[in-house]
């Protein structure tokens, strides 16, 4: 299993992501820098959270045009799994690898809190260890997490089973359409989500509901390699 975490200037959740992958997968991920034009051979590429390039222009906009993103796009096209969390999700929508866009939170304020998530589509390599419809806890910390897509795109996302997670029990923190917290691409090998599963993986975090996301995707990779 080879995971690679891509780092950008202004990332601040990269360390947590690296720790989660190392702890749960048993192997520390490889690291790539935003100016790299090639990525190491990878089964999973992760774009972590933070404020790449200071959120200038639009959150994730400048990172989405970084040299490394051509390599990420090429890998995704070949079926390599790509996970974007928070700012990473924003990068993936800005890069056109995921449908829709993430706008300023409806309440206009930065939200840092715990929300409840419904695992909507669990027939997927990222979510297979959650029960369909299972409600889990997960922290969020963002200013631009308000998921928007035009009517036609939203219909496709809903119709194709591309909704991975929804905010549940009235905990939508940002005004996202249809309470969408995370989406897959049409093929299911790219996942973007605003909540931070890497920050809820062990009792010291106050819970471990995020752990199974990594167990799912890292377990799938280990099975593939065997």
């Amino acid at each position: 299993m080879k995971a690679t975490v891509v780092q950008f200037p202004g990332c601040n959740r990269d360390r947590d992501m690296i720790a989660a992958i190392a702890k749960i997968g048993g192997t520390a991920p490889q690291l790539a820098w935003h100016t790299d034009t090639e990525l190491p051979d990878s089964d999973l590429i992760v774009l972590p959270g933070g404020f790449s390039h200071g959120d200038y222009l639009r959150a994730g906009a400048i990172a989405a045009r970084a040299p490394v993103m051509d390599a990420v796009r090429a890998a995704a096209d070949k079926g390599v799994r790509v996970l974007g969390v928070c700012n990473g999700f924003q990068m993936l929508t800005e890069a056109g690898l995921l449908p829709g866009s993430l706008m300023r939170n409806a309440g206009l304020t930065f939200v840092c809190k715990e929300v409840m998530l419904e695992a909507v589509n669990t027939d997927n390599m990222f979510t297979e260890r959650y029960g369909k419809g299972e409600i889990i806890r997960c922290p969020v910390a963002h200013h631009d997490g308000n998921y928007f897509a035009d009517e036609k795109t939203l219909k496709q996302v809903e119709g194709n089973g591309q909704v991975a997670f929804r905010y549940a029990n009235g905990t939508n923190p940002n005004g996202s359409l249809n309470d969408i917290a995370g989406v897959f691409n049409a093929y299911g090998n790219v996942l973007g989500m605003m909540p931070h599963p890497e920050n809820l993986i062990e009792p010291a975090h106050g819970g471990a509901d995020g752990r199974r996301l990594f167990e799912s995707v890292l377990g799938v990779l280990q099975r593939d390699a065997a």
């Binding site: 222009l57 639009r58 906009a61 400048i62 045009r65 800005e94 897509a149 795109t153």
Partner: peptide
């Protein structure tokens, strides 16, 4: 098209 606007929104 490439940077200044996000033509999705």
């Amino acid at each position: 098209e490439k940077l200044l606007a996000n033509t999705v929104i």
